[in-house]
Amino acid sequence: MDDGTAVESSDLAPAVASILADARERSVSGERVSVRPRSLPDRLDAVGNDRVPVIAEVKPTSPTTDGTRTDDPVALAQRMVSGGAAALSVLTEPDHFGGSTETLARIRSAVDVPVLRKDFIVREAQLDAVEADVVLLIARFVDNLPKLLAAARDRGFQVLVEVHTESELDRAIDAGARIIGINNRDLARLEVALETFERLSPSVPDSVTLIAESGITTPADAARMRRAGADGLLIGSAIMDGDVETNTQRLTTRA
């Protein structure tokens, strides 16, 4: 049994609390999915010797950025892959990030790299919204992490378990997470500190694929996270703000 307890909304920044409240209410109707995933760890390993292994994020908008991208998300995704992205992350949260499960399905059909579904999944039924190669579970928001992790794996998903604190990292490791993302953004204050990854990464077992998330905006930041042990980097705003292919090339090129 998972000893962790999902965070109370009062502990979060108002924008994040609103997103979580909507996620808890969101229903999914449909058949149980069954996925044959493209391997994210294998893909990150395959590109890691030649370029920085980046998971580029298709993010039309977010509470922490200004403006909205109205470009065709499939075209954006293809240009990210052309720019060297090892994998893609696609927002499917509709109300605050402008995402959709339909967009993810279109993107996954158009590219040959692993695709992560990034959303606020808190119940098993929400796993059945769309097929993806990887799903995100945010440890802070999940009451019973081992149960939801097992439910995702039963459907064939690989699972990226996101953490921000030592206790969340312990929960993820105890639950048997094989892919862990350390989020440099504190969801209580929306502040970003790359030191978060550097502080927590030494406690992650070598057998785990480790992803650095948030606050990576320059090649120097990317190199810093790689030195601290990141097997991959999840980058959103720094790629979406401008020409996505050029930005992806800049951040995937080894210094």
Rank of each mutant, 00 (worst) to 15 (best):
D154P: 01
R189P: 01
G83N: 04
M240S: 06
K147R: 15
D174V: 05
E168N: 08
G236I: 00
Q158P: 06
D95G: 11
L12A: 04
A255E: 07
V28G: 07
G48N: 13
A188R: 15
D66T: 07
T5N: 14
D11M: 15
T209I: 11
V159T: 11
V54C: 05
R106S: 13
S27E: 13
A75E: 09
A172C: 08
S100T: 09
G236Y: 01
V113D: 00
N144A: 15
D66R: 14
A132E: 04
L88V: 06
R140K: 14
E124T: 12
V159C: 08
N183P: 05
S237L: 10
F141Q: 04
V192N: 08
A110K: 05
N183T: 05
E245F: 00
R117F: 02
R69D: 14
T165P: 02
P53E: 07
T101S: 15
T68M: 14
N183W: 06
S9R: 13
G236N: 01
S27F: 10
T68E: 13
I107L: 06
N49W: 09
R117W: 03
T217E: 15
Q158I: 11
E213I: 02
A56V: 00
R123V: 12
V7D: 03
L76G: 06
G232H: 08
T218S: 15
V33G: 00
R117K: 02
P114V: 09
V74A: 03
A139S: 12
Q249F: 05
D186T: 02
D231P: 12
P202S: 06
A228R: 15
R43C: 05
R155M: 02
G84S: 01
P41N: 06
R26G: 04
N247F: 03
A129K: 02
R108F: 00
L160T: 04
R199N: 13
D174F: 00
